[in-house]
Design a protein around this nucleic acid. Structure first.
Lengths: 325, 325
DNA sequence: ATCACGGATGTAATCGTTTACGTAGACCAT
DNA sequence: ATGGTCTACGTAAACGATTACATCCGTGAT
């Protein structure tokens, strides 16, 4: 020690007020001079914590998830917690790697953005607190934060029905995806309330990608009788769909009204500007991180938080042409 | 110990071959039964390493960066290294937090995606190996991996000039951004080679956002004499620009050819599909991660890797209408 | 003068690994 | 039988911080 002691340094850093002013200054001067920094590994070992939380992301490259991560990160920073990111879309060894992450010695907590992971992983002893964000996992009733997916679908269908549309299609996401399940439920419930009968052949499947939206457009083009409106489970698919329709001479919204979900950045800037359901993904991430902080503080929260969504009406939806339908 | 010993367990895990088969099996059985897992903090403390590398990202929510992260992550996983993500776009305390990250006890290495950070941070003693990815930092000649930004601008300008355009504008990014600097250099050099004189009033500034593309479109609309083609420093700005032009009755590419940079996912799906310069951001991330692994292995690499780019010709650029120009 | 008390700081145990070193036994050669 | 070599494993010392406990000193009360 440049100044005087051993443990006193630790106290100076942790509880400056319990050490006398003189030594405090001496220690600080020595620290500044030597460029000392605490060794995280040693601190973690002693305190039995890691100082970081892991986010399990299905696909880091997807902006949908990175916005949530951004929200998580902003909250964790305040608490001086690190954000570790693990891409779960890995190969065969993925499962083992995941199990390694689901351990107290790796992370103080786990925020799971991937609804396709098997719930057993998070039930093992030694697994830190878990918060599900965005997607849910069947059979795992931990704390979770999700958007009001069913409500969003309702808003979209009510909007289209209010424009006079009676033949409304649905471009859904992957079958097992919890977002898809909720949005489909909202879609079908609202269709029924509106006295509309969804035709099975107008129930299309995609995988949330632009390409799958394009595929759906081709299916629509091949149909003998087409719907006059379609609700897409996300904006990427809506964008891909619109692009392919326009290329084939179908007018949007003239021949087909299109509504999306998410309100991603480009939705307002494509032509026609996309009518969609806005959800705040950064807020979702922030909320999930705050729930996590609560869990770390010992709150036994098993909350299931549902964040509100709003309809954003733009140019891709229009009243039904009375000559049709 | 369920089986027999203390240090033997460690050996069984690290070098299974130096321990006899009998004890090896015994140890493994005990591990399986008790659900033992190694404590990372203790291992890190002993081995004087962290087992993770930190990526400093200017804006996690930006898909541009998240794709790079995805590439980094895929390479690090193979080496069982964690990826920690730190958003540098923080508030006032950001600088201090950054300095904390630029320390061996936090990370074994640093991959920096933010070219606006002050170089001093990475010169401090105790700073782990640094790799610059995507953007560069003036006055810091560490290893770096960047795309061929000047070459990409060259490809775009040559393409537009080849279509007969002589009045070519440039929508650039932020002035101090290294991507902008390189692309501007490529743009101006190629214009000169083609015998074209870039008009100062056709040199527009944006910030890579969709909104700044829209702003640029409004500036174009106000001009007495407009260019017949424009090269945009990224696809987002090109998309925002096209959206606003179409809304105001300007045809793309009829009245104005537009070329972008990046080839983001939606570029192929907007209308008109965007001509752009493709760069592989995931490959960039992978390359940066591999350079980092090399540094960790003790290679003194001060490489400056430049990744090739390609022109993707779609529908937003067309030959100059002979009646104009 | 003795004691109690409280504030400031030093001592040492602890966290869970890794690993240099030592030792015990087996085996072979002399 | 002694000595040397090798393998398999136990012993104990690190790694660097935190923290319960002990110590020391000064102050005021009895």
């Amino acid at each position: 020690m440049a100044g005087v002691s051993v443990a006193t340094v630790s106290r100076t850093l942790a509880n400056p007020e319990i050490v006398s002013e003189a030594t405090r200054d001496a220690v600080r001067a020595a620290i500044a001079e030597t460029g000392y920094t605490v060794n995280q590994a040693a601190r973690n070992l002693r305190q039995k914590r890691v100082g970081g939380i892991v986010a399990l992301v299905p696909n880091l490259a997807n902006p949908f998830f990175s916005k949530i991560l951004s929200g998580i990160s902003s909250v964790l920073r305040e608490e001086r917690l690190n954000l570790l990111v693990a891409d779960t879309m890995a190969g065969a060894e993925a499962r083992e790697a995941l199990i390694a992450y689901a351990n107290r010695s790796h992370a103080d907590g786990l925020i799971v953005l991937d609804g396709t992971l098997p719930p057993e992983i998070f039930r093992r002893s030694g697994c830190p607190p878990v918060v599900l964000a965005c997607e849910t996992i069947d059979g795992l009733d931990t704390a979770s934060v999700v958007a009001d997916n069913a409500g969003g679908a309702r808003l979209a269908v009510e909007h289209l029905a209010g424009l006079g549309h009676r033949h409304i299609a649905h471009l859904a996401g992957p079958e097992q995806n919890s977002l898809t399940v909720d949005r489909k439920r909202g879609f079908e419930a609202t269709m029924a309330e509106q006295g509309l009968d969804p035709r099975p052949e107008w129930m299309l499947r995609g995988d949330f990608s632009l390409a799958s939206g394009r595929n759906a457009a081709r299916q629509l083009l091949d149909m003998a009788t087409r719907p006059t409106a379609i609700f897409c489970d996300n904006d990427e698919m809506a964008c891909g769909l619109i692009g392919e329709l326009l290329k084939n001479g179908i007018s949007v919204p003239g021949d087909l009204s299109v509504a999306g979900f998410d309100n991603v950045d480009f939705s307002a800037h494509i032509t026609p500007a996309l009518t969609t359901v806005r959800q705040h993904r950064d807020a979702l991430g922030e909320a999930a991180a705050r729930v996590m902080l609560g869990l770390l503080d010992g709150q036994p929260a098993t909350d299931r938080i549902v964040l509100p969504v709003e309809l954003v009406i733009r140019d891709s939806t229009a009243p039904l042409d009375p000559g049709r339908g």
